[in-house]
Computed example of a mutant assay.
Amino acid sequence: MTAPTAPVILFDDDHYMYVLKDQAFAEAWWEMPDEFTVGFDALARPLSMTGEPLDVRLALAGEEPEEAELRRLVADHYRSHLRGQMPPQATALADFVAALPREGR
């Protein structure tokens, strides 16, 4: 399998979304693998996380995009954590991902 395409979009166990610039940054930034719920790369392919605290690894969990699920989770994040703000409305996936707020720019 190929490496995840940047950025990576991760959701924690509180359904909070983190958009991280790339796989290496995400692996250095994310501390606890058990707080990871679900993730996607920029092509909406699902990610898995393995490892120990302070030593996590991300990998593609499949090659098939799950764009509808990514968009649903982003909408849930906005509804729960960014009340009063609207998620990106872009139709094209690349534009949608580019409009997401990023951590550690």
Score class of each variant (00 low, 15 high):
10 L>A: 04
11 F>I: 01
11 F>H: 03
11 F>L: 03
12 D>R: 04
14 D>Q: 15
15 H>N: 12
16 Y>P: 00
17 M>E: 01
17 M>R: 01
18 Y>C: 02
19 V>D: 03
20 L>C: 02
21 K>T: 11
22 D>F: 04
22 D>I: 06
23 Q>F: 04
23 Q>W: 05
23 Q>I: 08
24 A>Q: 11
25 F>P: 00
25 F>W: 05
25 F>L: 06
26 A>W: 06
27 E>Y: 04
27 E>K: 02
28 A>L: 11
29 W>A: 03
29 W>L: 01
29 W>T: 03
31 E>D: 10
32 M>C: 11
33 P>G: 05
34 D>A: 12
34 D>N: 13
34 D>R: 12
34 D>T: 12
34 D>F: 14
35 E>D: 09
38 V>T: 07
38 V>F: 08
39 G>K: 10
39 G>S: 07
39 G>D: 08
40 F>L: 03
41 D>L: 06
42 A>E: 08
42 A>T: 10
44 A>D: 05
45 R>G: 05
45 R>C: 07
45 R>F: 06
45 R>Q: 10
48 S>Q: 13
48 S>G: 11
49 M>W: 08
50 T>Q: 13
50 T>F: 05
51 G>K: 04
51 G>N: 05
53 P>A: 06
53 P>S: 05
54 L>H: 15
54 L>Q: 12
56 V>P: 07
56 V>R: 08
59 A>C: 10
59 A>D: 13
61 A>S: 15
61 A>N: 14
61 A>R: 15
61 A>I: 05
62 G>D: 14
63 E>R: 12
63 E>V: 03
64 E>Q: 15
65 P>E: 10
65 P>L: 08
66 E>Q: 15
67 E>H: 07
71 R>A: 04
71 R>T: 03
71 R>W: 06
71 R>M: 05
72 R>H: 13
73 L>R: 15
73 L>G: 01
74 V>H: 03
74 V>K: 03
75 A>R: 11
75 A>L: 06
75 A>C: 09
76 D>W: 07
77 H>K: 09
78 Y>R: 00
79 R>P: 01
79 R>H: 11
79 R>F: 10
79 R>I: 02
80 S>F: 09
82 L>A: 14
83 R>L: 07
83 R>F: 07
84 G>N: 03
84 G>V: 00
85 Q>A: 14
85 Q>T: 10
87 P>Y: 07
87 P>K: 09
87 P>T: 03
89 Q>V: 06
89 Q>G: 14
89 Q>F: 08
90 A>S: 13
90 A>L: 07
90 A>P: 06
91 T>S: 15
91 T>A: 13
92 A>M: 08
93 L>H: 09
94 A>D: 14
94 A>F: 02
96 F>I: 02
